[in-house]
Amino acid sequence: MQKRSLKLRSFVTIAMLSGISFILMLLNFPLPWFPVFLQIDFSDVPALIAAITMGPVAGILVELVKNVLDWIYTGAPEGIPVGHMANFATGVLFILPAYYIYKKFPSAKGLISGLVVSTVVMSLGMAVLNYVAFLPLYTYLLGFEYDMYETIVLGILPFNIVKGIMMLVVVTMIYRSMRVWIEQQRRQYLA
């Protein structure tokens, strides 16, 4: 297929996957024993599929479009969309390690080990980013002090690990039933 039409096709596919990702974001639910602002959703799964089949930029674009859409549709309750920025960072940190490891070892084992690395990178990365950027921003907007160390170590870090493990389980199950199809798409888009 011509290069230009392949590019257009991937743009349109990214748009569709962003739409799915956005809808999945609306189907979020809180986990028991975690604060309500930490919610689980499966919106990173379409981004991961985009990254695996069409390359890392596609995955990042899905995360970006999803968050802009959500901001337009639901607005940012804090005024400044800090939550959306945090969600974008989480998504990107999650899909990139899995993509690169799967690229090296394109098998179920490669994907699972990639997702394990992703979970570690994402939860540690978000702990750091929350410490240096997102929590101070919230503090600044709301103007009160709270124990940042406690919020991260008892709330955000374990939450992201649980989220990562849940993603791992779901993506592995999806991969088992879609493996042939995913490989077929990869051959088309990443040839």
């Binding site: 743009f11 596919t13 569709m16 849940m166 389980v169 779901v170 199950m173 879609m178």
Partner: peptide, 24 residues
């Protein structure tokens, strides 16, 4: 719930790629 997500996502992905191909 995790198990229930899979049969929801798989058809959604496949039809998204198909629809994208048609639209492109």
């Amino acid at each position: 719930r995790l198990k229930a997500v899979v049969p929801l996502l798989v058809p959604l992905f496949i039809s998204a790629f198909k629809r994208a191909e048609d639209l492109a």
